[in-house]
Amino acid sequence: MKTNKNYKSLIYHYIFKRTSTFILAVVVTSVFFERTYDHLCEAIFERINRGRLWRHIKHKYENNGDEDGFSMPSADDAAAD
C-alpha cells in the first residue's frame, strides 16, 4: 500500500470500496448523526421556549416528594440529559 495516499483515497479504500464496509459506515454514521441531530433540535426548542416547559419549572415542586427514589422515566427526562 502506498503511503502518500490522500484522505479521499483512504476513505475510498477503507469504506466505499466494499459494500460491507460501506453499509457499516452508513449504519454507524446514522446512529451518531441521529443522536446529535436530535439533541441539537431539542436544544433549539428549549432555547426558544425557555421557562415554559415542565423541565424548567419542575424544581419548584420536586424537593419535597419522591423520597422513595422511584420515578417514572418520562420522555422529558430522557430528552433532558
Partner: peptide
C-alpha cells in the same frame, strides 16, 4: 398519570 411530567411531579 398523564399529569406526571407535564403539570405535576409523580408524587403530587
Amino acid at each position: 398519570r398523564h399529569l406526571v411530567g407535564v403539570t405535576h411531579t409523580e408524587a403530587e
